Simulated assay, not measured.
Amino acid sequence: MSLLNFFEKGKGQPLVLIHGFCETSRMWDEFAEELSQDFRVICPDLPGCGDSPIEKHHISLEEVAVILEDWMEENAIQNPIVIGHSLGGYVTLALLELMGSKLKGVVLFHSTAFADDVDKKEMRNRTITFLKKNGVEKFVTSFVPPLFPESKREELSKEIDSAIQEAKRCSLEGLIAFSGAMRDRKERLDVLKTFSGPKLLIAGTEDGAVKIQSSRAQKDAFTNYVELEGVGHMGMVESKKETLEIVRDFAKSC
């Protein structure tokens, strides 16, 4: 039996919303509330995040996909549209490789089908070293603010503080394990291209974590592509109303 913690709202076509690194299912609270008017919205905590335990020090995205597939079977979540933010997008692609046409559609929110390059892999290694030395609180306090464009940080200070507090609910073991999983993940562009269902990529022109050049380089693998001008890595916070409507319209079109 799956040990994943999750919450759900609404009825109808299932939407599974998967959070990113240093996040929990609660990042989707407002999205879930709005989308539940039309859909069954289910938001899990990934292993080691929020209230979901993690049982190992190392985990692969493939293992996470198997955990999620079992969890969906246990909870009668069939033919879902899976929406993943950042790390959640990497998990979504691993799930797509595993389940294929059992998914109705996929949305990558500030994410990529490309693997880490050499520089990004080294950054993941530095993250692991920092976490082991300094712990969760010190890491997330420095990690979260740069996810937002510098020009918006004062305006969004309450949202950033809230994101930091939520990030502190991730375990040290979980953050270390997922840093390694992201570093070691493979490219899944072919998986994306092979999938014949609807596929949406939402990108931010000011995203410091997933550069806009990377998003543009893979846009042809998607049936739908949206660029958010002046938005960083947290479009669901920075442009809440716009991104909510984009996701709602896409899900209805599926």
Rank of each mutant, 00 (worst) to 15 (best):
V64L: 10
A65N: 09
A65Q: 08
A65T: 09
V66S: 11
V66M: 08
V66P: 00
V66G: 02
I67P: 00
I67E: 13
L68E: 13
L68I: 15
L68H: 11
L68D: 12
L68V: 10
L68S: 11
E69T: 11
E69W: 08
D70Y: 08
D70S: 15
D70I: 12
D70T: 15
W71S: 12
M72S: 13
M72V: 11
M72A: 14
E73H: 12
E73V: 11
E73G: 14
E74N: 04
N75Q: 09
N75T: 02
N75Y: 09
N75M: 04
N75F: 03
A76Y: 07
A76S: 14
I77H: 06
I77C: 06
N79D: 13
N79V: 00
N79I: 00
P80T: 06
I81D: 03
I81P: 04
I81S: 06
I81G: 03
I81E: 05
I81C: 05
I83Y: 11
G84E: 07
G84W: 04
G84N: 10
H85I: 01
H85L: 06
H85E: 01
S86T: 01
S86F: 02
S86L: 01
S86C: 05
L87H: 05
L87I: 10
L87R: 06
L87K: 07
L87Y: 05
G88K: 00
G88T: 06
G88F: 01
G88A: 10
G89V: 01
Y90H: 13
Y90T: 09
Y90M: 14
V91I: 15
T92D: 03
L93F: 03
L93Q: 04
L93W: 00
A94E: 11
A94V: 03
A94I: 03
L95P: 00
L95N: 02
L95Q: 01
L95K: 00
